[in-house]
């Protein structure tokens, strides 16, 4: 079946080839096709440029120091700032980092170095990770609301509830990236180590992990930037509370994050609040661009280590 499908493709291509030999001059259809393709890829780029231009122009008037040092205010948009949201984002992200990295890397090590993929439970884990990666982010918010904020865990609407919710969301990203990094380590290194009488874990911790570290780091940075930019699940786990004070800690008191703050300013009818939202967007996008650049730089730097 498959073979015949491929044969058909090859025959089609061959016929196409002989037809084209008869044609002379400029290949109008071909050029048109190339133009359409170029248009396709340009849409995204033009949109990106427009979006960046828009937020910069719209947010410029408020891109000043008070943006970082002031509390938010619903009355006076001109002196309103993002301070609690910035601190809240920091808290939430620390929580995400300390939970996601150890769990994600451990899971990746298990799946790559220990798991026998012919066992049903290991296959179940793999399928689950693939599926989780595509669950809408807001569903994680629902899970966070039902199990972490309320229910058995009952943390309440605190920053760490946000952290755990985002952790569940970005965990597949970290696992998938770490697995790829670990898989990239040549098996000759593992054999060399095991051949010397090292145990599995000695081999993993002393040879495999150091070599795959840049890849794991790249994946982690990308996952963190995804978590920082995420809004929807946090709407459900408490980040929408209007806070005029700094969060007390990971486990105490209300919190807000930058993205949710942008959302709230954006949804107000007054133009000044839109300006504030755009200014916050500049800061957020700049931060994420920086993180992405670091990740891409890391990847390129180490991609040809072996």
């Amino acid at each position: 079946m498959r073979q015949s499908g491929r044969t058909r493709i090859a025959v089609d291509a061959a016929r196409a080839g002989t037809e084209s030999l008869e044609r002379r001059g400029i290949d109008v259809k071909g050029e048109l096709f190339r133009a359409v393709l170029l248009l396709c890829i340009s849409i995204g780029i033009v949109m990106l440029a427009t979006l960046l231009a828009y937020v910069i122009v719209a947010g410029w008037p408020r891109l000043d120091l008070s943006l970082f040092t002031e509390m938010p205010s619903t009355r006076d948009p001109n002196t309103s700032g993002f301070l609690p949201a910035i601190v809240g984002t920091l808290y939430v992200m620390i929580g995400v980092l300390v939970t996601t990295v150890p769990i994600g890397v451990s899971a990746a090590i298990y799946l790559e170095e220990y798991a026998d993929s012919s066992k049903w439970y290991n296959r179940l884990i793999e399928v689950n990770i693939q599926n989780l990666a595509a669950v809408p982010s807001i569903v994680f918010g629902i899970l966070g609301l039902a199990f972490i904020v309320r229910g058995p865990w009952g943390l309440g609407f605190v920053a760490f509830a946000g952290s755990l919710t985002l952790m569940m969301m970005v965990l597949p990203t970290v696992i998938i990236a770490s697995r790829e990094a670990i898989r990239g380590v040549p098996s000759t290194l593992r054999h060399a180590s095991l051949g010397l009488g090292a145990t599995r874990w000695q081999t993993v911790s002393r040879q495999v992990l150091p070599v795959s570290l840049p890849g794991i780091l790249t994946g982690t940075i990308l996952a963190m930037s995804r978590a920082i930019g995420e809004t929807a699940p946090l709407l459900l786990v408490g980040a929408t509370t209007f806070v005029r004070f700094l969060p007390e800690g990971l486990f105490d008191g209300a919190y807000s994050v930058i993205t949710v703050q942008i959302f709230q300013w954006a949804m107000r009818p007054q133009e000044e609040f839109r300006t504030l939202a755009a200014a916050g967007s500049i800061v957020l996008v700049a931060l994420l661009l920086l993180m992405n650049s670091v990740a891409i730089w890391l990847r390129n730097k180490y991609s040809r280590a072996y």
Binding site: P186, T188, H191, A192, G195, L196, G197, T199, V211, A305
Partner: peptide, 19 residues
């Protein structure tokens, strides 16, 4: 097998020093 490999060393086809 770990004890076995500690007594019986191995050299591979392609040189594979650790980085």
């Amino acid at each position: 097998p770990i004890e076995v490999r500690r007594r019986i060393g191995m050299v591979f086809q392609k040189a594979n020093p650790f980085p």
